[in-house]
Write a protein that binds this DNA or RNA. Structure first.
Length: 417
RNA sequence: GUGGAAUUAGCUCAGUUGGUUAGAGUGCCAGAUUGUGGCUCUGGAGGUCGUGGGUUCGAUUCCCAUAUUCCACCCCA
């Protein structure tokens, strides 16, 4: 093999697809009960959408985007995340004129040109939700409670919600000044990376793991302690609503998030097990993004959940996930009966039974072996005698028990057992 | 982006102090006389020893580069 999958991409093979389908189906089911509707959007967008939507100062836009010029010379980018595209679709299609709030969910792949690591891929999958049109903290609680129900139904344990508030355009500038003033006198005590961040985005210093044990960072003022009255009330309300719903959470003033568009609420679901890639889901409120992208000022809140990481976490917690299941029945045939077997097999499939008949030149014994290997629940041998008498012996593979029945009764028997 | 480790059959891995046709287990395919799988036995297919250079009479083995994967940082899903 000379051609390999590109770096950072991976194949999901048949052994794994049942687990993927199960998780996606469960997600759709929970979203449906919250009355979120699915939206599907293009895989690539005009580059400018992400520059403006995700934010020019973010790592994503500065160095991680898959950007190319199409044949018309337009700059296009493979989406690095879902929200910007969903907002674009929301505006472009006039969903802002549909009943508000609009509640949308998506399951899609994203692309970021990053260095590889466990749980981090260049093409990765996210399941997300966006709720447009409510400033109320009840909307924040709504999307968070959707996640709690989803995790609960999957049987996921030991996953912790961390929440924070990073203020609004009213209180953040004041806080940033306060933060810069604080760090200015301690610049030499910070790591190189953080010295860069000082000018660009001083809030990120709080998130630095190098300096996590650094007393300077530990004691730095946090936005959550310097909220304006409106933001404070919003955050307090959210906490009350989460308490009311019975959800455990931890207030963590160091959660900052990597995207520029967040305001007020930010949150993460973090795993204890997966180590450095412990963030399974991240989200928050983005009250300024829609206006930033040319729409009328519209508050919104949402999240994105990493499917690969979720599956890793489910596996590390030994949560049972579906695996490949064999067909209900395999029809063994002979060269002179193979065509009639194929016809009977087709009829069974029409009746909603998972069936397989021989499509090789295999011997009788080899067919038996194959039926066993693929996990067929039953086999039936279709030879001249059976076809003539229309009576067959149905063999259950698990215990080798055979029962005799009319060929015409085969479908019903299988359905009922 | 930084540091470290790994790369030999589909999979998990041995191995050659540099020397003719490179191994095991498992999986795959087939056989062990008549139409019944799982156990056992036998046989077969499958590898330019990640790729490209270099040293050498000779490299899968030594050296360099490069790619990919993993681990720890960074960041995030």
């Amino acid at each position: 093999m000379t051609i390999k999958a590109p770096k950072g991409t991976r194949d999901v093979l048949p052994a794994e697809t049942p687990a993927w389908q199960y998780v996606e189906q469960k997600y759709r089911s929970v979203c449906a009960r919250f009355n979120f509707q699915e939206i599907r959007i293009p895989t690539f967008e005009q580059t400018e959408l992400f520059q403006r939507g995700v934010g020019d100062t973010t790592d994503i836009v500065q160095k991680e985007m898959y950007t190319f010029n199409d044949k018309g010379g337009r700059s296009m980018t493979l989406r690095p995340e879902g929200t910007a595209g969903v907002v674009r679709a929301y505006l472009e299609n006039g969903l802002s004129s549909e009943p508000s709030p609009q509640k949308l969910y998506y399951i899609l792949n994203n692309f970021r040109y990053e260095k590889m690591g466990k749980g981090r891929y260049r093409e990765f999958n996210q399941m997300g939700c966006e709720l447009f049109g409510s400033v109320e903290s009840t909307a924040d609680a709504e999307v968070i409670s959707l996640l709690f129900l989803f995790f609960r139904e999957l049987g996921l344990r030991e996953i912790n919600l961390k929440i924070n508030s990073i203020g609004c355009p009213k209180c953040r500038p004041e806080y940033l000044e306060l933060l810069r003033d604080y760090f200015r006198s301690h610049l030499n005590d910070l790591c190189d990376n953080c010295q860069d961040r000082f000018e660009r985005n001083p809030m990120r210093i709080l998130d630095c793991k190098d300096d996590a044990e650094n007393a300077i960072v530990k004691n730095a003022p946090l936005q959550i302690d310097h909220l304006c009255p409106e933001c404070q009330e919003h955050f307090d309300n959210l906490c009350n609503e989460l308490d009311n719903l019975g959800f455990a959470y931890e207030i963590d003033g160091h959660i900052v998030r990597g995207l520029d568009y967040y305001t007020r609420t930010v949150f993460e679901f973090v795993s204890n097990n997966v180590g450095t890639q412990g963030t399974i889901c991240g989200g928050g409120r983005y009250d300024g993004l829609i206006e930033e992208l040319g729409g009328q000022a519209t508050p919104a809140v949402g999240f994105a959940l990493g499917v690969e990481r979720l599956l890793m976490e489910l596996n590390s917690q030994s949560v049972k996930l579906p695996s490949v299941v064999g067909p209900d029945i395999y029809l063994v045939s002979f060269p002179d009966t193979v065509n009639q077997a194929a016809k009977i097999c087709f009829d069974l499939r029409t009746l909603n039974i998972t069936a397989e008949s021989n499509v090789t030149a295999r011997s009788f014994k080899a067919q038996m072996k194959y039926a066993d290997r693929i996990g067929a629940k039953y086999i039936v041998v279709l030879g001249e005698d059976e076809l003539k008498s229309k009576m067959v012996k149905l063999k259950r593979m698990s215990d080798s028990r055979e029962i005799k029945l009319r060929l015409a009764d085969l479908a019903n028997y299988i359905k009922e057992n």
